[in-house]
């Protein structure tokens, strides 16, 4: 069982590394931010598996914090350092 879960961590880590390629390549900043989001979720999955494999139950708490704060970098990215958020509102994109 442990071997299987370790292999699963390895596979998800490999996916995470592939996601890094997308950070390198872009082409746009939005793509980079999406890759970071993928790395965040993959990191959460890896932490959950790692906690079970190594018998560190507190790893789940780290995953909990990562999941709770997963949106923050993207919000900062979308806000572009401005006080007013442009890309928001119920129909802001559809109203054009």
């Amino acid at each position: 069982m442990t071997e299987f879960l370790t292999a699963a961590v390895g596979l998800i880590l490999a996916m995470l590394a592939l996601g890094l390629v997308s950070i390198l390549r872009g082409p746009g900043d939005a793509d980079r931010m999406m890759a970071t989001q993928l790395i965040g979720t993959a990191g959460i999955a890896a932490l959950l598996l790692l906690g079970t494999v190594t018998g560190v139950p507190a790893a789940v708490d780290v995953a909990l914090i990562l999941a709770l704060l997963a949106t923050f970098a993207s919000i900062a990215f979308v806000k572009k350092g401005l006080p007013r958020l442009e890309a928001d509102g119920v129909g802001s994109a559809e109203d054009e």
């Binding site: 939005a30 989001q37 979720t41 959950l48 999941a67 997963a70 890309a87 928001d88």
Partner: peptide, 25 residues
């Protein structure tokens, strides 16, 4: 474990909306 997944779902849904709107704008 389930609440972690719920939080990740919420984060994914919100972030994809925000990024998509920004890209479209």
């Amino acid at each position: 474990l389930i609440s972690i997944w719920m939080l990740a779902l919420l984060a994914g849904a919100t972030v994809s909306q925000l990024i998509a709107r920004m890209v479209r704008q």
